[in-house]
Design a protein around this nucleic acid. Sequence first.
RNA 1: GGUUCCUUGGCCGAGUGGCUAGGCAACGGUCUGCAAAACCGUGUACGGCGGUUCGAGUCCGCCAGGGACCUCCA
Length: 491
Amino acid sequence: MNQELKIFNSLTRKKEIFNPLVPGKAGMYVCGPTVYSNAHLGHARPAITFDLLYRYLLHLGLKVRYVRNITDVGHLEDEVEETGEDKISKKARLESLEPMEVVQKYMNTFHKNMADLNTLSPSIEPRASGHIIEQQLMVKQILQKGFAYESNGSVYFDVEKYNQQHHYGKLSGRNLDDILHNSRQLEGQEEKKNPFDFALWKKASPEHIMQWPSTWSNGFPGWHLECSAMSTKYLGEVFDIHGGGLDLQFPHHECEIAQSTAALGHESVRYWMHNNMITINGQKMARSLGNFITLDELFTGSHELLQQAYSPMTVRFFILQAHYRSTVDFSNEALQAAEKGLDRLMKAMELLEKLKPGGESSFKVEELAENCYNAMNDDLNSPILISHLFDGVRIINSIHDGKAIINDADLITLKSLYNTFVFEILGLRNEKAPSSRNKEILSEAIELILQLRQKAKNNKDWATSDRIRNELTHMGIEVKDRKDGFEWHLM
RNA sequence: GGUUCCUUGGCCGAGUGGCUAGGCAACGGUCUGCAAAACCGUGUACGGCGGUUCGAGUCCGCCAGGGACCUCCA
């Protein structure tokens, strides 16, 4: 397998050929959630985007280390850092829980939702609270290099000084003057030299429930720092891919670049990747905007905007039908269309297993395979990949109907191709396949009933045969008559 | 206001300057006892106005509309 994968590097704004730092291996770091409430549809986007990347890199034969953090401390609620409360702390106070109870609770539901969406677990899932020492060491490094200053027990990154030697803002395409002239002037920033300076270490007020001792104060690390510290720890001073949502590009990722560069003397990330947002009525879906639908609500249909429940695979397929760098707008119509399209694909997957080879193939399997790889190699173009898979669906259905032919070798290739791309790379699952334990009993019972119906049909007893079909349809079993008998599916 | 991205047929959503993306919906046909499914076929789609070019949805300019970031957010 020798594919040339191109990915869009946000830093250069170009598609670049992916050449891993160490041949045969790849390191990727993706910004994970702050676990202070339930995961929503927006969280599914990066999870699925980078799951797709992870799966494809694995498929290409690379040994991948996939690191995704859990933010469980340091993420402030308010823009004014001096009075802003830690998100986890606030939730703990409101719910009368230990902060770590809050973390555990929402981390568990996040993991469950991610498993529902069939995303693979990262190789390492480090938590900020478990890496206080590493973060303190990085603060010390940055202080030693002269790019940070201490102020009233807190430590801030000196953006202006950093910018004299490096370009602060290169990732998001801005410069310090722009930032200075276009930032709101906020109250309560007396501790900072400049409003755009950001906290590396924050002194905690006495009532603050999460704090750790340090040489500067009893406090907690700044939000941006965990990613720099933990990516360095687990992937090294230089690593291949850093991913996250587009909304994190500034300031979060910009700060990461500054921190790592200041501490290490060079940049860490070779390819930056950003997924775009999911919108609802054209506006970003975000917790802070209050227009979000949680994944649990989506899966159960329990939200006023939802006309029905949407299965995890429907959600996954819906997201994969748009390119990861495009915004995708939520609507019931779009989800329902995705549901039906997925159903069509899955039925074809089932049919594929039953196809009978014979004669010379009336189409080119190799061409289909090449199209699929080309789509993935072009910056993970999953919508194009899916369109090619649907081309194949038409062929599979035609073979089944006897209107196309496939030879033995091509059939083996085709099966392997579909298993690889649909299940292994796109990470889809056939949710309607009955569990193996019940499958046999169910199948035999339905076969028996349908054979009785066949007998009625042969006797032109349409009343009986229609009644059986209608009752089965009502139960969720779809019956299709064919020239030579019948077929059935669970709906 | 600054930076930046987008505007594709009824809906969603791809499009590297010339060749049918694809899905959903709709309509017609084949098949069928009837259905369903499947297959075949059907759409003056590219926000507006200019320009470059033999040729533009695709490049350039202007205009209109919208989004994202600029404060926490996946």
